[in-house]
Structure formats: structure tokens, C-alpha cells
Design a binder for these strands. Sequence first.
DNA 1: AGACTCGTGTTACCGCTAGTAACATGCACG
DNA 2: CGTGCATGTTACTAGCGGTAACACGAGTCT
Lengths: 213, 213
Amino acid sequence: MDTTQRTEQQRSADRRRRELLEAADRVVLRDGPQASMNAIAAEAGITKPILYRHFGDKGGLYAALAKRHTDALLDSLRAALDAPAERRERVEATLDTYLAAIEARPQVYRFLMHPAEGSSGDQGFDVGKHSVPLLRRMGEELAQVIEDRLDLGPGSQQLARVWGHGIVGMMHAAGDWWLGERPCSRAELVRSLADLLWGRLAAAGDKMGGPGF
Amino acid sequence: MDTTQRTEQQRSADRRRRELLEAADRVVLRDGPQASMNAIAAEAGITKPILYRHFGDKGGLYAALAKRHTDALLDSLRAALDAPAERRERVEATLDTYLAAIEARPQVYRFLMHPAEGSSGDQGFDVGKHSVPLLRRMGEELAQVIEDRLDLGPGSQQLARVWGHGIVGMMHAAGDWWLGERPCSRAELVRSLADLLWGRLAAAGDKMGGPGF
DNA sequence: AGACTCGTGTTACCGCTAGTAACATGCACG
DNA sequence: CGTGCATGTTACTAGCGGTAACACGAGTCT
């Protein structure tokens, strides 16, 4: 009875937890990254302390919420990355998948990327410790794929990690800028970025005299 | 006399403004991005409303403070970008300059990159509107250099802008990750990133059967 | 001289936030 | 029946960004 009861309660708690996360999701979709704990609690039809009992603090709620979307996005990216096609096509598909995701749900994207966690405490503040986990996870994941699939010679592991984080950062910054200004279509952006990764920067000729950029 | 008086007052106000900015600088260096207006006012030996009379709101103070460091960093980057050397060397010098800067003053860097402006208001929240200005400025600047110096054929302006923001994002993300984990020396990181930009990703061979990444 | 303005500074407050303590209620187990 | 235990509430703290209202000193006009 003890174990059954326990699982029963556990399941109930998990269900409640999921409900709360969905409510939080709705609020974030509506209000963006500044969604307050009060607003989320109200949306869920309860009050703050319950939220805190479930998630500890705002960071905990943020982490749980972020994990959902991050996992979902990473699944899509993995699928694009593992599709049966040429390397260039895969890269383009992956870029396009990411860009389509941030285009479809910009509010969620903002929440994930710019949590705006400026609260008290955190006096020590180790640099990079509170950095956005989505970018890091994408970077590490991509690094793994690169290392697994590419023959990079000696020092391949470190090279792959640098590239993983670098490419993810490129995708992120370009996407952020593109989302704000919409200077071109998604396909054009994808193609331009892939061209950059394919070495067109180094291959391009100088425009005028002297050594070009 | 009116004009003289006016300039006198203006100079006095400017001096005070600079003093306040330096105090803010000190606090940010000490407390990181969560530096509060109260703390900055206390450091400057005054109280909050004066700060607000000078800078309007926290965003104004942030903007003024950011402009200083951003301008300084951009000057360094321009210098590295304009040095008389081969393209690859310039790229490496620029990357190294940026990384050296964030390595030397990580707190300031965090303040510039992650301002954590989560306050009230801003209900509308247009995506990308409040994005980090340093990254954008660096991206635009780099885009200009690329467009000026490289022969990219048709659509060169858009391509240059995409690349500018993409490269800056790559540099930023890789630098952020590197600063947190320190997995290698600065020189190694610079070399790896330059290799990425030079197309080694596309040139690398597959490791096992089937089409590689 | 006296009144008037203006920049500089203060205290005391508002509304908001994250987070918590203390108290109430329902429900299963001995 | 009473005893835990989870769930829920109200009411609070401390601190934030931001502001209104008041006070003082210096220069100016009549």
C-alpha cells in the first residue's frame, strides 16, 4: 500500500506539475519573458506559494519550462541533422528548422534566450555560470555530432566543441537580428549562413587594392 | 553672459555626468550586471533622484555606460581589422582582440551582454527591440567592412549583413562558452574559429560510412 | 534690499517584484 | 476518533525602479 500510495501521489503531483507548466507556457506566450510568478499562478488558478513548493524559485520554474522547449527543439534539430542527405543539405535543414522555430514562437524564444533573471542574491556571480542553457546545450550537442561524424585529425574533440558553440552562436545571433529586422526571407538567410560556413568568406576576392578583409 | 553662464553650467553638468558614469562603472565592476540604482547612487555619494535627472531611467544609464565601453571596444576592433596584414591574420587579430577584452573585464562584458532589464512596463515587447546593442553594433560594423572590402557579387549587401551578424554571434557565443569553461588557450580558440570561417567544416572528410554531417 | 527663478539635493513615498511564514482545510491511515 | 500529510490560502517582508514634494544656495531682475 505504501508504495502504491506513493506512486499515486507522485502521479498526481506530476500531473499538477505539468498543468502548472502549461499555464506558465500560456503566460509566457502572452507576456513574454517578463512573465511574473503572480501572473503564472493566476493563470493556473492558484496562488504563488504552490508554485514555489513545486519549483523552488523562479529559476527552477524557468529551468523546467526551458527544458521542455529545449528538448523539443533539440529533437527537431537532431532530426534535421540526421536526415539522409548531403552534408550541406543537412546543415541548411538544421538552420531552417531552428529559424522556423524561433519565427513561429518568438515570445517563447525570447524567454529561453533572455530570461532576464535580474534579482537579488547572486553576489558572487561567476561569469558564464548563469548563461543561457539552451545555447550551451545546442552547442554541446552539435559538437558531439561534429566529433562523431567528421574526421578532423588531432585535437578533434576541442575543435568540435569550439565549432559547435561557434556555429550555434552564429545561428542564434543571425536569427535574432533577422527576427527583428526581417531583411530577407528565411531561405535566403539559410543560404547565406551556409555559404559562410562553406568558406565563401575566405574564397571571396578583394574589391579594391591592397589586401582585403 | 547668458551664453557663458550656460556653457559654464553645461560643463559642470557634463563633469558631474562623467563622475556619475565612473561611479556606475566601479559598481558594475564590483557587483556585475545586477548593480542597482541605489548602489550606484551610494557609490557616487548622492541619492537616486539625481541619477534619474541625469539619465532618465535605468535604460538611459545603461545606454550611456554601454556606449562608453562599446565605443572603446569597437575602436580596438577597428584597429585590428584595419591592420596591414593578410585577411586571415586580420581576422585572427580581431577575434583575439575581442576575446582579450572580455577576458580582461568579464564583469563589464556581462553587463554589456546581459543587461537583465526585467522591470515593469514593456508590456508590448516587440521581439528584438530590446536586444543587446553591442552585438548589433558589432554586427553592423563588421558587415560594413565586409561589404566595403570583399567582392561578393550580386546581393552583396544583404550577404555582408548576414555574415557580419553571424560572425559576431559566433565570436560571442564561443567567447562566452570559453570564458566559462576555459577549455583551451586564447590562441587555440582563435585558430579554431578562424579555421571554421575558412571552410574547414565543409572540407573535412567523413569519419565513417554514409554521408557525414 | 527683496523677490524670483533655477539647478542641486534630500526624504518619503508608490507600485511592483520574488520569496516566505503562518494558518486553514480535506483526506487517508492507525 | 485523532494524527499525519499534502494542498491551499492570506498576509507579510525586503528590495527593486521610479517619482512627487519639499529645502537650500546662488545668481538675476526690479
